[in-house]
Amino acid sequence: MKLLCVAFSEAELPVCGGLAASLGAEFDVLLVHGSAGAGYGAAQVMTLGATEAPTADVLAPCVAAAAVGYSHVVAVSSMATKDLMARAAGLVGAAMVTDVVRFEAPNRFVRPILAGSVLATVETLVEPVFLTFRAAGIVPAEAGSAVAVAAAPPLGPELATRVATTVRGGSRPDLAQAKCVVTGGRPLQDAETFERVIGGLADRLGAAVGATRAAVDSGIAPNELQVGQTGKIVAPDLYIAAGVSGSTQHVAGIKDSKAIVAINKDPDAPIFETADLGLVADLFEAIPEIVAKLGPKE
């Protein structure tokens, strides 16, 4: 096995290194954004030095050219890598596997399907294999020493022009990486209430904020906060779901959390089947009480 890890930023390198180490595989990195101070075990880092990540049409030919000589081309699952990797696999004629959660053999992988309710084992029949993998459960690699840097193959022609970009984020931790996540659902009424109640508890805990599809669809929370089958997959130590019914599609995104707490006023809400600790209560009373009893942040 020889891996090429495609990373949009240096922040993805520790898990790439961790994956390669767990597989006992040699690996190089193709880094889209910024430069790599350390290799996290990589033999070589190819950099593009892009200040803004190019669109998938421009990046895919570069990935396809860089892929030559590798058995596996891998990337941490995200919307950006799903956009890119399947296009690059299409150029190369590679096998493609999405959201791998377990590596059983160089050609055998386990991945969740049907909103995470079923684990499918798949076999790839050709090489190279392109795949995206979930970072949960992978022990991040140490930075290691400075790494050899090379230039990445050239980018492809621009077929799509980015005419506007809205990046939100602010000071809270990144949802996909956070140690603690507080999620709110439909009953949060409006953006201001959501921010005050859910955001308030999150800030007290140093947590990221998540939302259900119902909350996003009704404009209570921005789309990049959606957690679930078709949103972000989270794996924090503590996941707090407040006013969340616990649909299969939502639960698909939280199953790797170490502890799940549910606050819901309906004692029969399905979320209680998934929660480790359930509190039957009105969130508008329970959350302020939690914040008050935790006291000010040290």
């Binding site: 669109t55 995200s78 919307m79 950006a80 077929l159 799509a160 022009t161 980015r162 005419v163 506007a164 970009t165 809205t166 990046v167 939100r168 984020g169 996909a176 921005p222 789309n223 990049e224 972000k232």
Partner: peptide, 12 residues
């Protein structure tokens, strides 16, 4: 929709 917000693409 993107991982951190939205973007707008124009294409032929």
């Amino acid at each position: 929709e993107t991982d951190s917000g939205e973007e707008s693409l124009r294409m032929k």
